[in-house]
Amino acid sequence: MELKTITFFYGRENILSNINLACVTGDIIGIFGRNGSGKSTLLRLIFGTLKPKSGQIFLNDMPSNKNLVLNKYIAYHHEQIFLPQNIMVRNLIPLYFPKGSDQNNIFHDSRISKMERQKVKSLSPGEQKYLQFLLLVNLNHHFVLLDEPFTMMEPLLKNAMKEIIMENRFRKGFIITDHYYLDVLEVATRKMMIKDNTVWPIFKDEELAASGYLPER
């Protein structure tokens, strides 16, 4: 997946300028940036729910379009929980995975098997978010965009999510953004910073402070 010279405006306000970014299978790209810097906007541009003012996104060297994205190329974990609420977990899973064999990875997860007879709305926000994460990562998509996956999560669930990301990195590319930056730093193979409307590579963790994202020590 490659972004070439992406520019985006909200009204007259320039949010992203001249963004160039490539993500391949095996990449776990951590994107950092202050509130309002354009991290979520960037993920929505890649997912196709926002359109860039200029520039182009390529998927396997083909210009990205809605059909390509919907045709199992990109999964997008929204920062909010988007699961239907009034449905039992055991009935929700087959909506994404109609084949029984594809459901195994989900139902065999010990945390999911405990909640499978509960309705989604009766789960805690953290449990719902974990379920949402697990569903998306197990889809057959080439790339997974994770917007604030670790926010609200208990440490055990966060660790489980990080393990799942690491296990899946050999068949997918990930882009993660979250203010729980230590968790992102732990899994990221490449780090980027959005500042002054554009993306900068981060080579050392100390650069996060130098760039104004973290307080200076």
Partner: peptide, 15 residues
């Protein structure tokens, strides 16, 4: 009330 759920269907391949 439920517009966020459109993301569930988008991820499932339905616009």
């Amino acid at each position: 009330f439920q517009s966020i759920e459109y993301y569930f269907y988008l991820n499932g391949g339905l616009s």
